[in-house]
């Protein structure tokens, strides 16, 4: 009996031990280092000041200074809000563009589907930065696209607008880069739907709109949620696209954090921003989960 008990306990550790160790090493420890760093002082030449005083008059030890600083200037909260706005807009546009495409692929003949999925992920074959730089050319003032758009605006009496180095360009870049991350989970979900459910709905009197809205859409929600998470979170931390395509005002959290570590070399404040971002994302995820659970109950 005791032997059996021991065996199950050993088996349990054999199964859950490696993932536990992996998460501790590569997730928990780095996060802890980040948390500790956010409470420390910056070093004289970047990096972190020592924890224990060696020279008199130097700031050492732990402090809440970086957090006070974060809340002292509203600009940081503003950048957070703006970043969440951009992330939500990108997620929404991705969803609107990806859903019809995913439906189309899922309803195509089986032999064509793999090829169509391949087309969706094909852009990953070329370098991310090169693809974003390509948008600089497409959106640039001399591009055919830019000229056409401004010509069109001219008909309505609107003065020419620069497309590049704008929030619009950032949104275009974000959507372009993250679209496949929305298409794939949606397709994976939609492909599994039993077509007889749509027949049943139609047989029971549902027109095309109701068949989508009452059957396909609610059944696809798991795919929508994972697609949204796969777009929202990376967009929130993205700094390359605003750097390349955005204007001077298009600073997002990603840029801010990057600047703290690579520009001003204020590691404690960079760590603080990262932790605030993590907290904000977790809060949002928690709220979303609560809302969706309530939705299921109804």
């Amino acid at each position: 009996m005791i032997n059996l008990l021991n065996t199950t306990r050993v088996t349990k550790w054999l199964v859950s031990g490696p993932p536990f160790l992996y998460l501790t090493l590569f997730f928990l420890l780095p996060s802890l280092i980040m948390v500790v760093a956010s409470f420390r002082y910056p070093g004289d030449y970047g990096g972190l000041a020592p924890l224990f005083g060696v020279e008199p008059g130097k700031e050492t030890g732990l402090t809440l200074e970086t957090y006070r600083f974060f809340f002292s200037d509203f600009i940081y909260t503003q950048i957070f809000i703006k970043s969440f706005g951009v992330a939500m807009a990108s997620t929404l546009v991705c969803l609107l563009m990806a859903y019809p495409l995913a439906l189309l692929i899922a309803h195509s003949p089986r032999k064509h589907r793999d090829f169509m999925v391949l087309l969706v992920i094909l852009p990953f074959a070329s370098n991310f930065l090169i693809r974003v730089y390509a948008w600089m050319i497409i959106l640039g003032p001399q591009s055919a696209f830019s000229l056409a758009v401004n010509h069109l605006l001219g008909w309505f009496g609107i003065a020419p607008v620069p497309l590049l180095f704008s929030s619009f360009a950032v949104l275009v870049g974000m959507v372009y880069v993250h679209l496949p991350f929305m298409v794939l989970p949606l397709y994976t979900n939609l492909e599994k739907h039993d077509p007889v459910l749509l027949d049943a709905a139609q047989d029971l009197g549902a027109n095309a709109w109701n068949r989508f809205w009452k059957v396909t859409w609610p059944l696809s929600l798991p795919g929508v949620y994972s697609g949204a998470a796969l777009v929202f979170i990376p967009v929130l931390g993205m700094f390359a696209i605003p750097d390349i395509l955005g204007g001077t005002g298009d600073i997002l959290i990603g840029n801010l954090i990057k600047d703290q570590f690579l520009g001003t070399r204020d590691w404690p404040f960079g760590s603080t921003l990262s932790i605030m971002l993590t907290i904000a994302v977790l809060l949002l995820a928690g709220i979303t989960a609560m809302i969706s659970r309530q939705g299921v109950r109804q």
Partner: peptide
């Protein structure tokens, strides 16, 4: 069309939502 016919079907797999 099927949705306008006063005819309903019980499918072999039940097709419950």
């Amino acid at each position: 069309p099927p949705e306008k016919r006063p005819i309903h079907t019980v499918f072999q797999s039940y097709a419950l939502f």
